[in-house]
Design a protein around this nucleic acid. Structure first.
Lengths: 343, 343
DNA sequence: TTGAAAGCGGTACCAT
DNA sequence: ATGGTACCGCTTTCAA
């Protein structure tokens, strides 16, 4: 076991095993040419000393840090958590590790994080969305680190993209409302540029209303993200007060949709008979609320898995010949009791 | 700007500014003795070259990596996310960075993570709970890295502790039920040793029932964590089928409590008139459900903040004289409509 | 299969 | 206030 003093190094292990430190270095990694006997001896010596590889030194020497930097807007968000999980789980059996940061939906904070991360020499960077400060773009392009942008379809991508059209998600919902016979349709949230994805959903939503020749002024801004149940409830209250005859509302997320739903129920309204409510994100709550909330599933987990796959292809020894394709996810509408009247 | 070739190093900056690399090193950190003029010149040269510090090299040289490793059971859990946020936000203005891993409630996975993290030479490690594999304990003790265990009161702590008694949380709820006149009281979840905190809540719960001379067999196990709405609903179904006269149920978390609540509502039962339901964790959903769900608030955010504070005291240049105290959090019961009958 | 030597890019330490 | 130098612990490279 380790003595009370300094941590043992490869040289200590080498000495104990009667080999050079170079052989120790090899023996500790798979697929290296070290005779079985030597490898065993070295492994034993390392165990006895309680040796632990210093990947800081390894990283400096090899200029491969094994870090993948990932920024998400918020940790406490089931969608981004799922994407992160997809990345982490796909990376588990590699020697890559995720360096996580959350931006709190702020591009300034994102810039700060990226600047910090770049000092760690990550081998790739995964970001949520395509909205970045000018300086952030510059830092990234300057660094030459491969990028994947997710959850969005940036107009000027920094690298690969694994995302979907948020505008399309909004459009899908308008069509669903329309098919169900709703005509006085509103939207809650997605008003601020901090949440560009929410903003895009609202844009697509409004655009689809226009195409159908429907009114487009039933829009309630719920302020800066994260938008949760409280904001959803407050916004619905305002909606009902400003446009009492509204018959369908999409909320920027399922959480705010649940808040809106409870607000309606407190007001004694029946959902969907008096008013239809829908959300976004396919959260658990949407499935379990009574009535269940119609939502759009953007395949958060799959975004993460695809992202990791692309990265491994870029970094790993995988077939470099096939360039990793930008992956376009198709958002799916899940119609449920909060918008569909029982027969 | 950076050329197409290799990243510039301090030596490049030094050359350009006409100083030694040592002076560059100093100039790039605050509170170092470098004349204003020199510092400016160096800063300018660094900017022009697009220089980015390599903290891998810095870490190797100074044996201060700036990493704090943190393991939590699950990313997608508002409680742990809040604790993490408390840590990260307190650390933001320091040069410490969080290295996050999630164990999926598995001590084996925790061991794997810790082993990986130790190679990064973190300056401290924060873990959730006090349950670890033997090997994990050994690795940690061997490493000499300062530890904080959170969300629990381990019998044999590895270092500092910022937590609370989960058993007490269970006891609190039994007393509340009793005060409200409930006598046929059950518990959902917390049956597996993977979630030792849930298990402790259930233990305290059962113990308090015993002390009051009440039946203690209305226990539904909901299987391995994470326990969410679906499991809560299924467990409540079983509870109502096995013990139809149950009049109060605590669930291991607010998410499962919400699932249980919806199950009761689907079954046409009134809450709390026919049955009372309570949860744990003070999630948003507990506040916004109809009726609002009685819960226990364990101050997740504050656990994180306290943890970070302790770490900074241990690592930083702060007053070393006062040894950082183990911080005991008192869980608070929030009584709400799901257990309290209106007058 | 194994080893020797030269860095990787910074910082500690000691001079000046 | 600034510079020189050794060295952090490992891997790359080249030789044997």
């Amino acid at each position: 076991m380790a003595s009370i003093s300094k941590r043992p190094t490869m040289i200590d292990v080498a000495r104990r095993a009667g080999v050079s430190s170079m052989t120790v270095s090899r023996a500790l990694k798979p697929n290296t040419s070290v005779s079985d006997g030597t490898r065993e001896r070295i492994q034993k010596a390392a165990d006895e000393l309680g040796y632990v590889l210093d990947s800081t030194a390894a990283g400096l020497s090899s200029s491969r840090t094994g870090f993948i930097a990932v920024t998400i807007p918020s940790i406490n968000n089931a969608n981004f958590a799922d994407t992160l999980r997809g990345i982490v789980e796909r990376l588990r059996d590699t020697n890559m590790q995720v360096l996580l940061g959350y931006t709190n939906y702020s591009t300034a904070e994102e810039e700060r994080l990226i600047e910090q991360f770049l000092q760690r020499r990550p081998e790739a960077i995964v970001m949520t969305g395509g909205a970045h400060t000018e300086r952030c773009r510059m830092l990234i392009e300057n660094s030459g680190v491969p990028i994947v942008e997710t959850w969005d379809l940036p107009e000027v991508p920094l690298g690969d993209v694994v995302g979907f059209s948020n505008a399309e998600a909004g459009r899908l919902m308008v069509r669903h409302f329309y098919d169900q016979g709703y005509r006085k349709i509103g939207f809650i949230g997605g008003d601020t540029s901090r949440d560009t994805r929410g903003l895009d959903r609202r844009r697509g939503f409004v655009q689809a209303l226009e195409e159908l020749g429907l009114e487009t002024d039933r829009l309630i801004g719920s302020g800066p993200p994260p938008i949760s149940m409280r904001e959803g409830a407050a916004s619905m209250k305002k909606m009902l007060s400003d446009w009492p005859d509204t018959d369908a509302v999409m909320c920027v997320s399922d959480l705010s949709a649940f808040g809106a739903l409870t607000e309606c129920q407190r007001a004694g309204m029946r959902v969907p008979d008096d008013i239809a409510i829908a959300g976004f994100g396919a959260y658990d709550i949407a499935e379990h609320a009574i009535p269940a909330i119609t939502t759009v599933d953007a395949a958060a987990l799959s975004i993460g898995e695809n992202t990791a796959e692309i990265l491994l292809r870029r970094l790993g020894d995988a077939d470099e010949e096939t360039p990793a394709p930008s992956t376009l996810i198709a958002p799916k509408l899940l119609a449920r009791g909060s918008t569909v009247r029982p027969l």
